[in-house]
Write a protein that binds this DNA or RNA. Structure first.
Lengths: 213, 213
DNA sequence: CGTGCCGTTGACAGGCGTCAAGTACAGTGG
DNA sequence: CCACTGTACTTGACGCCTGTCAACGGCACG
């Protein structure tokens, strides 16, 4: 519904800054982050919109007892860090060497309207993820994760995971052991092939999607 | 960050229509729904913004195997149904007799910007819920649910649940039996008291919050 | 009073978390 | 060149939590 109004015909995720705002926005240049470096932390003052230029980002929250839930992964072109309230309730970290461009929302309050597609996209992803972690078994979650990663890397059947197992586990609400076992099961069923710890090859795409339900 | 720009000092959830849009919006009058009646269904064309006037709404998706996940409950003042794409991916149903006001987004495209606080609020709730269903045990989820319901009914320590057990279960990613058992455990610990199947009284508010971590 | 729905409780099995051991590999320093 | 170390990942054993199946009670309704 919104795409037809604000961003006709274009994927919401890949809006270049210039297309969205007409190029007259005060944007800082791309800044680079190393693996694990914090982009913003829970409790810090908010007020920026961030976009991944290259690399990847994990956004997570940690419960008082130390359990971590990764809320979302963001890749090239994705906007993140958009929220209500004046303080961040989550933490964003670079995965590998990552380039981030940020915009001050205080200095450019009118750009909120241009960010609506990005916010809706983030919202939609969060809802999608609620189904996965709320109602799917371990192997189904891992299957859904691989399908999502495949789709977000351009629909490739062979790709490398950006993140370690612990990130996958904390994204899916599982432990690293269960993720590992689920991958092994998928491999033994002939649905995927593993090429080293990070390399994934989807052999039976249809079977994988059937598992996602 | 956004509240200070678009809705200074007011709770995002309770923005009256008039305050947000200046009263010059083509809004249909409040329409009434009976218990279980569909407000919109998955697959239908989107293009409306909805607001709960009275009663309550559940928004859910159903997986191919029949498992249901309730994504959110909405109460008086809440906006819902906002999304990208032109077709609904979820279903919204009334819980009990419910009044809904809707606005056509096609006829009032400019109101999107006024809905940003509502979208961010929905997004924030979805993220919050990801933590609950991803990283908390059954009793912690139920505790978090009770705390949420208490907060959303105005911070009352004694309130009635709008929804049956199956809705609570499908919201929390549990079964009705586990929800029931968790409530019994909370009761036996003296943290809550149960007044009939729907009546909840929070006795030890602090202990309940400690469980939510 | 029978029927159906909702909720609770019990018995049991299975999936997943926990704990532990083992492998592969990159980096470091001798 | 190779031992040493730390990290990431896998695999196995075991136990608990929660899902499944079943029985039961309370209540509204016909």
């Amino acid at each position: 519904m919104l795409t037809s109004i604000l961003a006709p015909g274009s994927g919401i995720n890949v809006l270049p800054l210039e297309l969205t705002f007409g190029g007259d926005v005060e944007s800082k240049p791309t800044s680079s982050f190393v693996d694990g470096q914090s982009i913003y932390s829970s409790g810090e003052r908010a007020g920026q919109a961030y976009r991944v230029e290259f690399g990847a980002v994990r956004v997570y929250r940690v419960l008082a007892n130390g359990r971590r839930q990764i809320l979302a992964f963001h890749f090239g072109g994705d906007w993140f860090g958009l929220q209500n309230g004046d303080r961040h309730r989550s933490t964003a970290e670079a995965i590998g060497v990552t380039g981030i461009r940020s915009i001050s929302l205080q200095r450019n309050p009118y750009i909120w309207q241009g960010l609506m597609p990005a916010v809706l996209e983030n919202f939609s992803s969060a809802q999608e993820h609620q189904l996965v972690i709320g109602r799917q078994s371990a192997i189904e979650r891992v299957a859904a994760f691989l399908a999502e990663m495949s789709e977000r890397t351009g629909g490739l059947h062979r790709f490398e995971l950006f993140m370690p197992r612990v990130d996958v586990a904390d994204y899916l609400g599982l432990t690293i052991e269960t993720v590992s076992r689920s991958l092994t099961k998928l491999k033994n069923k002939g649905i995927i092939r593993l090429h080293g710890p990070r390399g994934i090859e989807i052999v039976q795409c249809r079977a994988l999607e059937d598992l996602c339900l």
